[in-house]
């Protein structure tokens, strides 16, 4: 389970997240929606401490992954990022072969057993629904793959280190409808084994893939509820105005 308790986050003087508390159950998909600049990506990136890399940021509150406050002293951030994988908006494969992209996380973590690596690469590519398309060209450059395949390769790369949580920041926004559909199908499959949190600007995508949805605006979590309820009968007028396109 992932949990946030009264999170406030600042970019220098800018108060980007205001008292956010929520719980995301294991093996569920949670979608974050909201207008640009509302804080949803900032909130997502807290869960593998990606915001640590930005100077001048400050956090109060607790961010708990599998029972542990990930901002507590002594937390190994590299270990955390193995546990909490991330997929970005634009596919970002390394300039390496397909095989080496997936094997990368294992190698940097000191795994040297070739058979083990081969097995994990195959499992991860299969888990990302890419194995059948690339099994005969594993030594080819990852850049030879289509955008949708590259994104699934990035998912396979994240899966290779056996995380328990997958964070996805608009993972399909740069993809065509067929590739988008494959990513969405994959999300449905992956939730059996992983807890998934996705940021999306696509309302229908949030409705299709998630069990719960959180609506953010101006740093506040306006509403967090079951996706079905959110898209049929949201509690807050602000939510209704946003999802029906009447916002502003």
């Amino acid at each position: 389970m992932i949990q946030s308790k009264n999170i406030d986050f600042y970019y220098s003087d800018f108060h980007a997240l205001k008292g956010i508390s929520m719980e995301m159950e294991a093996h569920t998909v949670t979608a974050f929606i909201g207008p640009s600049g509302c804080g949803k990506s900032t909130f997502l990136r807290l869960f593998n401490r990606m915001n640590d890399l930005i100077p001048g940021t400050r956090l109060t509150g607790e961010c708990i992954v599998d029972g542990r406050d990930i901002y507590a002293r002594g937390v190994n951030v590299d270990e955390l990022r193995k546990q909490v994988g991330m997929v970005f908006q634009k596919p970002n494969p390394f300039p390496k072969s397909i095989f080496e992209n997936v094997a990368y996380g294992l190698r940097v973590n000191g795994v040297g057993d070739r058979k083990f690596i081969e097995q994990r690469v195959e499992e991860s590519l299969a888990g990302a629904a890419l194995w059948n398309e690339v099994k005969d060209k594993l030594k080819k450059s990852a850049f030879e793959l289509s955008g949708g395949q590259q994104q699934r390769l990035c998912i396979a790369r994240a899966l290779a280190v056996k995380p328990s949580v997958l964070l996805m920041d608009e993972p399909a926004s740069a993809l065509d409808p067929i590739s988008t559909s494959k990513i969405e199908e994959l999300i449905h499959e992956l939730k059996k084994d992983y807890t998934i949190v996705i940021v999306t600007h696509n309302m229908q995508q949030a409705a299709r893939v998630s069990d719960k949805t959180g609506f953010f605006m101006l740093g506040d979590l306006v509403e967090f509820s079951d996706t079905k309820k959110m898209f049929l009968n949201p509690d807050k007028e602000q939510t209704q105005n946003y999802i029906t396109g009447r916002f502003g």
């Binding site: 309302m203 229908q204 409705a207 898209f231 049929l232 009968n233 949201p234 999802i243 029906t244």
Partner: peptide
């Protein structure tokens, strides 16, 4: 238009 919420209802 893929309506949701009050529009869908």
């Amino acid at each position: 238009f893929a309506p949701v919420a009050v529009d869908l209802r």
